[in-house]
């Protein structure tokens, strides 16, 4: 599998994760449990597509070869996507969706905080802008996790099930690749070594308020999104998202 340089790979990880998470949010259109949530979910989605475009633009410039953000988003196969396994998981019910969102926000928040201090100015600028948005996303998703965990017997049970379905993919939030470590140590992207503990602390705190139990640390298996080894779901997600670009390769939209 083709790999780019360390920074480009990292940019793809940030961009692809935001994009895939946004794509899942788009699936909620017209189906949210309250009209107010239609707006809220779409707001988060809009922020994330915007972030994805910024990361992928930068990645495309580094890759060259006539690439742009659209060609990266719409013309790569799943084997070349670097998004976190968590965000490609199906939406399930609102408990699964909100828990996924929370896990992702709780990772993005400390990550972007550190990236905003990056030596690489472009990384720092994108992170600074994104961080404002993600601060609000995290506030909303952690409130929903608390509401649903603590709300009714039914909502609590649904959250327990959601944790059971999703926790297995959480190992990616707490591990750093050697490439990321070296980027971090060189301060190209800021010191991200503390992201794992901050993610865990946030989860512990919100779960406690939500009366939910934090499971033992998830053990990795051979699925590794950094190497493009994803769950079965990503292929279908991309087939849908990329359909027009694939069916009409010479078209301009």
């Amino acid at each position: 599998m083709q790999k780019y340089d360390e920074l480009t790979e990292f940019l793809l990880r940030m961009g692809d994760s935001a994009l895939v998470q946004a794509q899942r949010l788009c699936e909620w259109t017209g189906k949210a449990p309250a009209l107010e949530e239609e707006l809220a979910l779409m707001n988060v989605g809009l922020d994330l597509v915007g972030q994805a475009r910024n990361w992928l633009d930068y990645a495309a410039e580094r890759i060259g070869d006539g690439h742009d953000a659209d060609s990266l988003a719409y013309r790569r196969d799943e084997r070349h996507f670097r998004n976190l396994l968590m965000v490609e998981q199906p939406n399930g019910d609102f408990a699964v969706t909100m828990l996924k969102q929370f896990f992702f926000d709780a990772w993005q928040y400390p990550m972007l905080t550190q990236l905003s201090k990056a030596k690489d100015e472009r990384v720092a600028a994108i992170a600074t802008k994104s961080l404002k948005e993600v601060t609000y996303h995290l506030r909303r998703s952690s409130e929903w996790v608390e509401r649903l965990g603590d709300g009714t017997e039914e909502s609590h049970q649904r959250m327990v099930k959601a944790i059971d379905a999703l926790w297995r993919f959480s190992y990616e939030f707490v591990e750093l690749s050697t490439q990321e470590q070296s980027l971090s140590e060189a301060h190209t992207i800021g010191d991200i070594s503390s992201v794992a503990t901050k993610w865990q602390a946030m989860v512990n705190d919100v779960f406690a308020r939500a009366t939910l139990t934090v499971p033992d640390a998830a053990q990795p298996f051979y699925l590794a999104s950094r190497d493009g080894v994803h769950s079965e779901h990503l292929g279908f997600l991309l087939a849908e998202m990329q359909y027009l670009q694939r069916a009409h390769p010479n078209a301009s939209w």
Partner: peptide, 22 residues
Amino acid sequence: VTRAPTLKRKLQLMAKIQDEAG
């Protein structure tokens, strides 16, 4: 909206749908 052909078109359509809910 899940099949919009470019990121720009996706953003525009999402914003429009969101306005409609609004």
